[in-house]
Design a protein around this nucleic acid. Structure first.
Lengths: 202, 202
DNA sequence: CGGATCGTTGATCAACTTCAACGGTCGTGG
DNA sequence: CCACGACCGTTGAAGTTGATCAACGATCCG
């Protein structure tokens, strides 16, 4: 047996689609043609503020973050995306208007990406993808809604504990500063929370 | 000329769809057949916690709210829906699992609603609706994402001022308690915010 | 080796909650 | 039609949560 080819493939994405709604051969072929693989090195921008988000990204390996920098210079993380997650500023992507968000890589990250034009082509060629992307966004919507609910109704400590459960696969890959920025608290306060939690346990 | 028929019609909804992606006659007819109008009186439940959300609602007239009641008995409002907005617990609706949210009417409210089964039928009969509902959810997603961003990065005062702009059509129809519950603060604190803002202005 | 980034800790300050009390308005039943 | 209760908005005092600023040690990478 030989090693798998080193050249990146779209198969992880096709597997992902199949797990939602099975694709036929023609549809799989469309995916192979229209999605391009691309490697982003750690700290590299995927989307820079004020640019138009022109790529819909599927993370094969690595980790991205999407965030906003406010007037005071603080960054607020809206979303992480690691293996098998999507990353795009949907507003900018669909309305073709400049984004007030940024996306960059927290690790060397391999993505499969499709441009706006090719996504339209995909929808037109195979209407099943209208449905697939509808389901996909519905799922993201539910996740986002739960997060908003948590933010409205819970203390920082509760949010942190919940984050460590929900993102257990990610928590050890992320610096605490990034987690704090996702939770909407300062790194200093997160540090104090952690030591308080440890004390309470023992 | 006669008065318009008093019997509620699906025309506002068809106009709404046409503004997104124009419908042909057959598609319009499907909407007329599959959406049913229904009146909810003030305080009446549209969805009760632990039930499955089986209806996708379009508000023709009035106002609904969707909220969660936490362990301490506090209610947290996730969304208002007045004229031409949608209201549904998407998670419960699509996964057919019991909801931990509630929906009720803040005013007497006329909705056009479609059941899960009929929505599937709609998607199957006219794939254009896959696209329409994809676009619709994309829009809701952007709104939700902006709100999350605000909640992470702004003070209560900023959120309140922003709310009064964004929801200016609603702000005078809503009791302050409801606005506070939407912003994620106590009614008392909102009251103090308001008086502070007035003082600063003069 | 040296700078950049990260995590920690303490003191002080600002944002927001909690609880209690009070007055106003509105709708409903007697 | 009035009275009463329910709900709403306001205010103040005291408490909690989390931010800010400054200082320090550890690690990592060029």
């Amino acid at each position: 047996m030989q090693e798998k080819p080193i050249q990146p493939s779209t198969e992880p994405l096709i597997n992902y689609f199949n797990s939602l709604i099975p694709l036929n051969n023609e549809e799989s072929q469309l995916v192979r043609e229209l999605f391009k693989s691309r490697l982003y090195r750690k700290k590299q921008y995927v989307l820079q503020e004020n640019d138009i988000c022109n790529q819909f990204n599927f993370v094969v390996r690595g980790c991205l973050r999407m965030y906003k920098v406010d007037e005071k210079g603080n960054t607020h993380i809206i979303q992480f995306a690691s293996e098998n997650w999507w990353m795009v500023d949907i507003g900018s992507f669909h309305q073709k208007k400049s984004s007030d968000l940024s996306i960059d890589a927290l690790e060397d990250t391999m993505v499969l990406q499709i441009s706006y034009e090719n996504l339209i082509k995909l929808y037109t060629s195979a209407p099943k993808f209208d449905r697939i992307f509808r389901v996909l966004i519905e799922n993201s919507f539910v996740t986002l809604q739960n997060r908003l609910l948590q933010n409205i109704s819970s203390t920082a400590e509760e949010r942190y504990l919940s984050f460590m459960e929900t993102y257990s696969h990610l928590s050890n890959r992320l610096p605490q500063t990034q987690i704090a920025s996702f939770l909407g608290i300062t790194p200093e306060f997160l540090s104090k929370l952690k030591s308080k939690i440890i004390k309470t346990k023992s």
